[in-house]
Design a binder for these strands. Structure first.
Lengths: 119, 119
DNA sequence: TCCTTTAGTTACTAAAAAGTACCTACATTA
DNA sequence: TAATGTAGGTACTTTTTAGTAACTAAAGGA
């Protein structure tokens, strides 16, 4: 009848899978971000994909969308309380990536953009 | 010049991103599996995708491919020592999925296939 | 001899994901 | 009056990803 998962990780992937969602969320674990900030932090993402992914994350209760009623518009995104339950996982995913880059290339400085995230 | 990541999680996604890899790996954290076992555990995967994903994981050093020189062929896959560094992350991803299913549907039994993985 | 079994390959097709380019709203400021 | 800045929407195209179906190898057994 109802939708079945063969293994629970499939449910996780429905929510945070894909090319952009983990990236967006890894930025949000460092705090609230405006739309434009996210675009700057993720230079290769298009407006369309950014909005689309943010909408889905909001729909799944992972992030909050905070709209300030002003012109020009100001919108901020943050991890919701529920999304915060992903914090450790997201952090581990970032950490593993750093280790992997080092293992693969010998160092991470030359292959990883400097940013608040990679200290 | 050389390839750059804007954030380290991108490197992680290159290795374990996509629709099938986390599923395959979550099965392998419970031990060595033959090709046919994996096909049975992941009913919706096709032979082609299974082989393709396994090859990539092997190439990235995440899994070992163990070939027994016999006919009909017998091949087993297991997490490599390096792949084992993903064990905790994979486990957390599964756990989060279970919580998410419960939060979303009220219970997990009706939405999650019974298997060794979901006790 | 021919079927079975297991793991895998390949050419082709279909579907899903992502990219492009252009459009909107509207208060503020020059 | 016209340009600016910010967030977002949309139709269309391209690219990527995945699925389909038919194929191979080779030992053992009927």
């Amino acid at each position: 009848m109802s939708k079945k998962y063969n293994i629970s990780v499939e449910a996780t992937l429905e929510v945070i899978g894909g090319k952009w969602k983990p990236v967006i969320l890894c930025h949000l674990i460092h705090g609230k971000k405006r739309t434009g900030e996210l675009k700057r932090l993720i230079p290769k993402i298009t407006q369309k994909m950014l909005t689309q992914q943010l909408r889905e994350l909001e729909h799944d209760g992972i992030i909050n969308r905070i709209v300030y009623n002003q012109v020009p518009p100001k919108v901020e995104y943050e991890l919701s309380e529920y999304g915060d339950s992903l914090r450790e996982i997201l952090h581990s995913l970032c950490l593993w990536g750093e280790h992997h880059i080092e293992r693969t290339y010998g160092n991470s400085k030359d292959y990883l953009e400097d940013s608040v995230l990679n200290q």
